[in-house]
Design a binder for these strands. Structure first.
Lengths: 226, 226
DNA sequence: ACCTGAACACCGTTCAAGT
DNA sequence: ACCTGAACACCGTTCAAGT
């Protein structure tokens, strides 16, 4: 709560503290009125650095993507390994901050980190042998697969944190208890539902998409878009 | 604004009007204080039918899923066609109401419509030849692929509606304008980025997953989970 | 792209009271 | 799972004023 000298507040520090507050106290706590005290300034001081709350959220999203990009091996010669490296790093970076990730993972950020990510994926598509419309099309399948899964997982984690604290019920607990006569198939596999490893699924879903990229690239990427 | 007789308000009507208000005026307008007048009651009357706002949101999500299930051909004998039918219906039902869909698509609903959906998918996995842990695992890959893509698309539509009204900039417009020297790959395919058809991508992503289900089912589903 | 404090126009939710 | 109106404890954002 210590007051600070003027001119010492920065966008970077606001983003950092905003992420800390949200992860520690829940995304409901991510308000200017709580952020002010946490930064040692008046709540409205944050508005001198971000036009509005949405601009702050997009900056948080950009920070998550920067964290991801910092872990990617950009010199990896295999396009396929480069994409897997980017994908795993993105998943890790977002799921590491599930509450803020859930708020921003489906947003178009339009910031430098996003442009660099797009550039990386399209470059990989071209190396795989795709051009023009085929490269654009498969870029979107790859990017949206990574983003959609990442956003989904972040949401599941974030909601899970809140719900479990709220009513103590885990997802799998709920399902095991369903009546067998009405839901025989669920009942038959209920015991296995909680064992599923989401990282494995993410990897599998991505490998399937990259198999398709590889097949289309080898066939000559100009022929068909999808 | 017409006042109504007591006892005539119902959960179903509240859900319907809430969806109308949100789609017509933006998801910011989905508040009890606006919903009251739209229903002809006091804002707090809604709280006599839903414990809190989150319960209303989950009911809206259940309605979207009911809309989807109503379109599915449950008697289709091919498990693969049944899954595709469910997937397409889910995508359509959610994207038809993008703003509310964006609010609920990643939530675990824990309502009857969701249990029926899970039951349908697991039944299809078993018909494909998967059992136990393998069926549970592939159920999750299928369900999460549909949900993740649907949530992602709903978000893109919802944000798109708001952003386009806000600053008149479409996603593709933004990217065409990037400097070619720093983003050569983007520049090379920029003209194609706006042509991509999301429905085609959704279909492709799903077909790839179902290919994997088919391959594992034929190989004998007990062997490996993923 | 300075920081503050008061003010404005909103929220969700609770609760006593009215049918 | 009745409905209302006032009240409470919050929000984001604007704006005049202070450094």
């Amino acid at each position: 709560m210590a007051k600070r000298e003027r001119g010492t507040l920065s966008r970077a520090e606001i983003v950092r503290v905003a992420m800390e507050v949200a992860e520690a106290e829940g995304s409901d706590a991510l308000t200017f009125r709580r952020l002010g005290p946490a930064l040692g300034v008046a709540p409205t001081a944050v508005l001198r650095h971000f036009r509005d709350k949405d601009e702050l959220l997009l900056a948080i999203g950009a920070q998550l993507l920067e964290n991801a990009l910092a872990e990617v091996d950009h010199d990896e010669p295999s396009w396929r390994e480069r994409i897997m490296s980017l994908s795993r790093a993105t998943r890790r970076a977002f799921v590491a901050h599930p509450r803020v990730a859930a708020l921003v993972a489906t947003r178009t950020l339009r910031q430098e980190a996003e442009f660099r990510t797009v550039e990386l994926i399209i470059g990989a598509m071209e190396q795989a042998g795709l051009n023009g419309r085929a490269a654009a099309s498969m870029y979107r399948v790859v990017a949206d697969t990574v983003l959609a899964w990442t956003a989904f997982e972040a949401n599941v984690h974030a909601v899970g944190l809140d719900v479990m604290r709220q009513d103590g019920l885990a997802w799998d607990r709920e399902y095991v208890v369903l009546p067998a006569d009405r839901y025989p198939h669920i009942r038959g596999v209920a015991e296995h539902l909680s064992e599923v490893d989401r990282e494995d699924q993410f990897e599998l879903a991505l490998e399937l998409v990259l198999d398709a990229v590889e097949a289309r690239g080898n066939a000559g990427g100009q022929a068909r878009a999808i």
